[in-house]
Amino acid sequence: MTEAAIRTSGLTKYFGDLAAVDGIDLEVNTGEIFGFLGPNGAGKSTTIRLLLDQLRPTSGHGQVLGLDLRERSLQIRQQIGYLPDDLSLYPKLTGRQTIDFFARLRGGVDMAYVDELAQRLDADLSRKVGEYSSGNRQKIGLIQAFMHKPALLILDEPNSGLDPLVQQTFQEMLREVRADGRTVFLSSHTLSEVERVADRVGIIRHGRLVVVERVDELKRKAIRRLDFEYSEPVPASLFAGVEGVRAAEVHGAFAEVSYEGSVNKVLQTAMTHEVINLHSRDADLEEIFLAYYRDTDDNDDPQGHTRSSAPSASKDSSHVQ
């Protein structure tokens, strides 16, 4: 019962000389929502396609639902729901025909549940897929992934093309899957897309798993930004030396502050002058990466990730007056 939903060890995939996935040791627990984050070309889709046996690993191995990826792929695929990135469907089939086809291919799909999903996602099943907007196509893909109540959902950038309302419904559906004791593995570029639902996230970059962290922990470490507008120009050195401040840029009456950890000290400092406007910006993924690279500064990092990101990091800190 306590077996991991996904476990890989040293999973590696080379395309020619390029290590798209480079020695990934991943463990996703049964019953959790795991966010798999990384920038373009980091190796997210490649990892997922290795799990599905669509690509064959150069080295390393793994298990999904306790079954070997290579030997037992058919049994694995019986128990998972998958949404590919950049989803393509048969353009001449209607949404309904598409769902029916995949449902019959699996067997044992409850069509009443399909209708329920379609209704919740507000999906139009009557038209030909080729005529759909990309969001509508994505909904067909989601229904197809959820319809057989799989033990594990593997979703590659599921949010793409969905409007905010549908995204909300989708996140509810994910929470229900978790409440059901089932597992979700979903990839994304940005933390903001997964932070509300994911229990843990793994960050992949250049094919390497940089960190796996609980989301609440990650948020605590994340660098965030506040922009202040003052009633009159403030000293350029206002935020220098304040606890948690990573970078601060002051232009007359405007200040942009990046900080990590508690916002308290930043606010206290900011309030020493009269603030007329305050704007908070979401921490974006890149900043979280940078935060992690800084953390690994002291550690031995043979891949040189730290060095490659160092210029932008030092550029930031040079703004501290």
Binding site: R77, Y82, P84, S88, G141
Partner: peptide, 14 residues
């Protein structure tokens, strides 16, 4: 080429 293989090959068929 049409990228429909990704979904097809993820179904429980060899």
């Amino acid at each position: 080429r049409d990228r429909t293989m990704s979904m097809l090959s993820a179904q429980p068929v060899t």
